[in-house]
Simulated assay, not measured.
Amino acid sequence: MGKLGVIIVAAGKGSRMGTAESKQYLQLGQKPILVHTLQLFQNIHEVNEIILVVGGNDVERCTGYVQSFALSKVTHVLAGGAERQDSVRRGLEALEQDTDWVLVHDGVRPFVSREHVFDCLSKAKEQDAAVLAVPVKDTIKVVDSAKRIQSTPDRRSLWAIQTPQAFRLSLLREAHQRALQDDFMGTDDAMLVERIGTTVHVVEGDYYNIKITTPEDLPWAEWILQNVRGEEQQ
């Protein structure tokens, strides 16, 4: 099996939510969104440790969550960097040295199913790198800065990438180190791995694994919690 570490990234300000509070700390049911996410991985037996990366001003609050919600697998609560990539790199540096596999997951995705977490990890163990994703439902247009349509890619080739993203730890560390050396900033961890020549495989997830980023997401999240992915359904 090898040791499995999880990096939960929750350092974002969440300006699109339009609230004074960052989105990961908004209440969902009776708990902050972030706590739902942490508990999901806390309850997966195969996870050895969780590294939580948050905004510098939120370290104390999140350390409190770890204690009050008995999140015993959270070994570090770290202040994130300027960009998500910097935050993930800090998480990678904190993982125990004998860790073999790592999952990187968004703190505001509390509804990924355990089955899909394992599917993604299993594919990474075969291929070194795998990400959860779903086929795009809508027609996508490439649009220029003047809002003029430039092209229409074939929808059958388009997938919306989710998290977790699963990697052999040594591979992801190398990808991050190379990006740092080259001053390259990617949009996700898979992009950094692709960039050093490793093929990343897609594992199909589902549309309930939403990223809670705008006010419209909250009622939908409450519905998923009540009907699909609450703790009693996991």
Rank of each mutant, 00 (worst) to 15 (best):
M1A: 12
K3I: 05
G5P: 02
M17W: 09
Q24E: 15
L28V: 12
Q30I: 07
Q30A: 14
H36V: 11
L38F: 07
N43V: 01
I44M: 00
E46W: 02
V47E: 02
N48M: 01
N48R: 05
L52R: 00
G55I: 04
G56K: 08
E60H: 10
R61E: 06
Y65M: 08
F69M: 05
T75P: 00
G80A: 03
G81F: 06
R84E: 08
D86R: 03
G91S: 00
E96C: 09
E96L: 10
T99Y: 06
T99L: 04
L103I: 01
P110K: 07
S113M: 09
S113P: 10
R114H: 12
R114V: 15
E115K: 12
H116I: 10
F118V: 05
C120Y: 07
K125Y: 00
A130F: 03
L132H: 05
K141N: 13
A146H: 07
I149D: 06
Q150L: 15
T152W: 10
P153Q: 12
S157W: 11
A160F: 15
L169M: 13
L172P: 02
L172T: 02
R173Q: 15
L180D: 06
D183W: 11
T187P: 03
L192G: 08
V193K: 00
T198N: 08
I212A: 11
T213L: 13
P215F: 14
L225C: 13
N227W: 15
E231P: 15
E232R: 12
Q234F: 11
Q234C: 09
